[in-house]
């Protein structure tokens, strides 16, 4: 990897994203939700956890997938692959921009919701794992879609299940729907975030974290194999 090339990628992504309406509109979603929740009198720990999940699905995953698919659609990815920049430079550069955007959204949402976090270190670890997971998922969607329209077709059901899964699960806690949703990454992330915010003992949510890490490793492996298969590596 080459720091100068990665920083070139970052500057490029910044210039490109700042006038990208699609990117700007997904960034608004979690912040809008945060404002909404801060005005309602609900439980803040739940509101914050839900907004975190929205941030990683709508910002991290969407932005990552959109940026990658657009590079494919506009034939700029091919140009990058034919340049002396390595695949790692290109993918790391791309991932950093969606991570930076997410971190900004996370911080802003936290400030808006103003929830008291009992175990901030654990919460940071959970969010970091989630970031990696959703960068991988976004990359996977970007790799599998040939254009922007296709990206949206993949992302809508995916973000619905992952993002709103934990909410739906509350209403279908019994039966097969609830059981299946209970194994989605959003569900584990929800449990883990709630526990960290409330400062529960680690043993209470160890299993959720193990599942979350398992999802992350699986997503990374599948994304990596797809990357190789799509002959984007060189």
């Amino acid at each position: 990897m080459n720091a100068a090339r990665i920083s070139a990628m970052l500057v490029k992504e910044y210039h490109d994203a700042k006038s990208n309406v699609q990117v700007l509109s997904v960034v608004i979603v979690p912040i809008f939700l945060a404002i909404l929740y801060s005005r309602m009198d609900g439980e803040l720990d739940f509101a914050a956890s839900f907004v975190f999940i929205m941030a990683v699905t709508f910002v991290t995953m969407y932005v990552q997938a959109l940026l990658l698919a657009e590079e494919k659609e506009k034939n700029t990815l091919q140009v990058l692959l034919l340049s002396p920049a390595s695949s790692a430079d290109i993918m790391v550069g791309k991932s950093i921009i969606s991570v930076i955007l997410t971190v900004i959204v996370l911080v802003v949402s936290m400030l808006i919701i103003d929830v008291n976090v009992e175990n901030p270190i654990m919460l940071s670890v959970i969010l970091l794992v989630a970031l990696i997971l959703f960068v991988a998922l976004g990359t996977l969607v970007g790799l599998l879609s040939e254009n922007l329209v296709q990206t949206t077709v993949y992302l809508l059901p995916l973000s619905f299940v992952i993002g709103f899964g934990p909410m739906i699960q509350m209403y279908f806690s019994e039966g097969i729907v609830g059981d299946v949703l209970g194994y989605t990454p959003g569900s584990f992330m929800m449990e883990a975030c709630l526990a960290a915010i409330n400062g529960e003992a680690f043993s209470a949510y160890r299993e959720d974290i193990i599942w979350l890490v398992g999802w992350t490793v699986a997503a990374l492996v599948v994304t990596f194999i797809t990357f190789k298969k799509k002959s984007l590596s060189k």
């Binding site: 500057v11 990208n20 700029t76 002396p84």
Partner: peptide, 30 residues
């Protein structure tokens, strides 16, 4: 790849960015 240059009909540019921003980016990559 840094020793060759390519212009084909499937070469793209970043169309929201200016001409100069595009070229500055590639100049750094290369």
């Amino acid at each position: 790849l840094g020793r060759i240059g390519i212009l084909t009909d499937n070469s793209g540019l970043y169309d929201r960015m200016t001409v100069q921003q595009n070229l500055d980016f590639y100049a750094k990559l290369y």
